[in-house]
Design a protein around this nucleic acid. Sequence first.
DNA 1: CTGTTAGCGCATTCAC
DNA 2: GTGAATGCGCTAACAG
Lengths: 358, 358
Amino acid sequence: MAVTLADVAARAGVSSATVSRVLNGNYPVAGSTRERVQRAVEDLDYVVNGQARGLAAATSDLVGVLVNDVADPFFGLIASAVQAEISDPSAPGGGKLAVVCNTGGSPEAELTYLTLLERQRAAGVVITGGAVEGAEHSAAVAARLARLAESGTRIVLCGRPPLEQPAMEIPVTTVAFDNRGGARRLTEHLLSLGHRRIGYVAGPADRTTTRHRLEGHRAALADHALPSTGPAVDRLTVHGPYDRSSGYDAALELLRREPALTAVIAANDTVALGVCAAVRDQGLSIPDDVSVAGFDDLPFSVDTAPALTTVRIPLQEAGARAGRLVMGRQAPPPGGLATIRTELMVRASTARPRAGSA
Amino acid sequence: MAVTLADVAARAGVSSATVSRVLNGNYPVAGSTRERVQRAVEDLDYVVNGQARGLAAATSDLVGVLVNDVADPFFGLIASAVQAEISDPSAPGGGKLAVVCNTGGSPEAELTYLTLLERQRAAGVVITGGAVEGAEHSAAVAARLARLAESGTRIVLCGRPPLEQPAMEIPVTTVAFDNRGGARRLTEHLLSLGHRRIGYVAGPADRTTTRHRLEGHRAALADHALPSTGPAVDRLTVHGPYDRSSGYDAALELLRREPALTAVIAANDTVALGVCAAVRDQGLSIPDDVSVAGFDDLPFSVDTAPALTTVRIPLQEAGARAGRLVMGRQAPPPGGLATIRTELMVRASTARPRAGSA
DNA sequence: CTGTTAGCGCATTCAC
DNA sequence: GTGAATGCGCTAACAG
């Protein structure tokens, strides 16, 4: 069916070995024969068979990118940056293809996709987003990663903490986000405005990202000598998935539990949109009655009304870096861990609470 | 290095052919030997080599998904739906991996990625988003698609018109969007509210999507006996890329050209965000001074303030359908073309123009 | 039902 | 510099 190396060789009057050499350009070949081969390639519209090449040379043009969901801008931005970086044909080892896998945050799906990528002998894997906490699952993932790493697959974690103790031998590079610090500065901002009754809409309960952001929040509360543990705080905390409707429901619940709430922090910007909608639907104004803040600084956050106060994560830069690392094009950071700074973006959705309401 | 079929065979005391058979389950194998093999597979943690399998069986687990940019929610939603659909392991032929390629709308990049996917002998390719108009490029793409189709790669176009005349022999299924009809209904909505001076921020000049939406807009104008061609209309039309800043700049330009503008239609919702920002920055109110409308109904559009009037495209459904088609899991529509309906979503960003201003 | 035998298309020793 | 031979790991006839 398709034209093969042998066809090209026949047409150029050389052996297939020679064709292979000019194609890969890593062996000396006489200029004249090289030209003849190249012409034959063009004449026949020859396209190498990646599978055969991969099998023979034990290489692969694929890089896996695990995300919760590419439709979520948070992951879309990272995936886009990774893809752009690895496919750059001018870079050494470039021209790789990105295999995007939606795990939906499910540990099982994560393992399934890692196996699928191992099956393809992927050149690298970038795992993005927070991890599900739990020893069993961590161990299972670590085991798969160990196998992958052993077979030469480069592994980069992006937006997730490094592997835990027993798995630290595995050569994995991590690009982590400073979720804790960002959350802390965000809460400090609200506290300094005078807020004291702050609702917190956290993400799914067993995720590292959720925990870190919550820890930052509570650290800020503790700094201000406010209760940071116990029922008083738990009462103002609601968990839910990372979507708009979750934010909507959570905000209603928080307002029910504490009608005198003056501020709400959301797990991320998408959730914050739902919170805003709920607050408005209750006839309350933002930020006059209730301040609202998000996390991530997704592109739309500057265009909500009022513009959303949030914590910026340079997702694009982080993804690009992860892409370079997984290509081995950039030296890993010391200790294999780079922590990306986050930045508080103060906008119009947060303000001082009404006089007398604090 | 890695454990192979032969290793499993040795361990199970059978031939490698038998192992292959139980793995693929398409040949009768005795229950007892099957169990023995399966145990060996587990013991050795065997994972098939996809490249070798693909080479031997002339198959592939990859499906290419060409998008402008996955970070753009429009494409992210489609890509996500395609991915989910093709990776479903329970479906026949399922468990495929999605190779996401950002073309940035560039014809050259599109061709490059199609070649890369041909190299991988992809099982299918989904090409999303509007096409660049132009005979040369269309022909080049058609040629590549013909080669791909001939080699058994299923091809689906999603959000782009079908192939033109000379290439119609190529077996390609198209899931098109009714951009023209949607744009027409949107403009009719504004006209019926009483708007007569409507600015139009169009997308990049040489894209099918841009043209179709513009055509729908002008058809509506013509229906109302308003000028639909010529300098009067051109004056109220500005072209630009599909991003926020483009919308911002375009809105300023339109307001400069026609300060008495009462409405602006944007190429899509992202552009509309920029338009809204510009309008507000000019001290004008939406919709009291100027109505603004978008296109696509991206998730954030319901949460802008005021909520954006727009034309909904069921991107998720379209992507899922494209995914099923590319897997051959759903019969192609008659004529190979399915046109997805679009729906006008009237929200708060459009209203009657100020009395006397019409 | 199962083992044997050939390739799939290419990279890569090893000779020349 | 170039060709011939071997094998990557697996599937698919072909026998039995």
